[in-house]
Design a protein around this nucleic acid. Sequence first.
DNA 1: GCAAAAGTGTTAGGAGTACACCCATGC
DNA 2: GCATGGGTGTACTCCTAACACTTTTGC
Lengths: 224, 224
Amino acid sequence: MRKTNALYKNQGIHVITAIFTVELGVTKVLLVKRKNEPYKGDWILTGGALYNNEDLEAGAKREIFEKTGIKDIEIEQFKAFGDVNRSPVMRMVAVAYIGVIDSSRVKLIRETINTSNADWFPIDKIPGLGFDHEEILKEALIYLQSKIVSTDILKALFPNEFTIPEIQKTYEAILNKKFDRRNFRKKLLSLDLIEDTNKTGRFEGKKPAKLYKFKDVIESKKVF
Amino acid sequence: MRKTNALYKNQGIHVITAIFTVELGVTKVLLVKRKNEPYKGDWILTGGALYNNEDLEAGAKREIFEKTGIKDIEIEQFKAFGDVNRSPVMRMVAVAYIGVIDSSRVKLIRETINTSNADWFPIDKIPGLGFDHEEILKEALIYLQSKIVSTDILKALFPNEFTIPEIQKTYEAILNKKFDRRNFRKKLLSLDLIEDTNKTGRFEGKKPAKLYKFKDVIESKKVF
DNA sequence: GCAAAAGTGTTAGGAGTACACCCATGC
DNA sequence: GCATGGGTGTACTCCTAACACTTTTGC
């Protein structure tokens, strides 16, 4: 039935991920340039068509790997996008994810069969994007911002030890907002996400800063 | 390319909505019974396959109307479900929505071409559901719970005037939790969602209760 | 007048915010 | 020894949670 009904013909699923990093206090997102029509030459988020033999999240991760070489990235689904004309080729619904990774710890494959010039773009200097990826990126950033205040999603940026002034810079970059040093420390510690390592390191200051790390197990807190 | 590659063949999109209501302090969800294979005879949430000429939300609303006769319902997308085997017919990704409606204000069409016995089921007495709808319903309820504490999503249940003890019962039914009368009133009023109508009505008590109504315009509050 | 539910106010504890001083180091 | 950023504590406000008494009505 379905295959002969034009109303259902040629539907497909995109899996798209907005991958963020923070470099020197600047929030950046990973973009690749399309080599083929449609939107040839346009920048887009990493992603592509879902295979029939993979789950959504697996498909999103495969696309990330194929387009950038990035492996071992945790991603989180935040919304589906399905306007009728979001793809000019055929009816495609996009399931969108966010991910966070430390750009200094990955070596980007900049050139692939379908894309080129993979690179990190500061979120306030984004070129025009193909498909509906500008809308997806905008919502992805809002979702990321909502996540960093209550989860350990930044663990990917600080897999090992870090100082509080250091991670505060990252929070400020993503939320685009400054925090009081003393209150930020108190708040972050009260979230029970990180723990003291009893070691000290150095960041920008002259006085060595204490080193913390994300806890291995995070108990999610009840809101009600 | 895509049409000849088995990896992309025969994909489709479901739009599924968990429609909730509250009757006499009991939270219920709308289920319909399938007439055809697969899952013939099983209960499922309202929904079906997306057409190529409609946006996601429009498709979800069309399916609601076709399966139950319900019109004029506001719905909100909360997640996409896309496990490889979630449909035995072909690869289908479901985009899931929640909706809230006053069951006493709608007349259900219980019998349609593909479904029968449309009815409201208390959420603690749900029969086994077809496809992955049990998982969808579970996540839908969690999403609904997160929404009623900060938005006017219950406006659909109280489009006109209501008393605070009355709406408190509804909150308690959905969140499955009791609240102190005095604190509930203070909290709800502080949310700026409702306003006094300077009239009184009756609910359960002997003393007439003040009537409130949802504000027409809700200013969303900043969290940061 | 009494039962039943509605309305209201006070207090204590915890979280958020604002703010000032001392500390450890590099130079 | 001084400049630089790191570490800490305190007071005020606001939100939350716990809790008891008075009010209005039906009968």
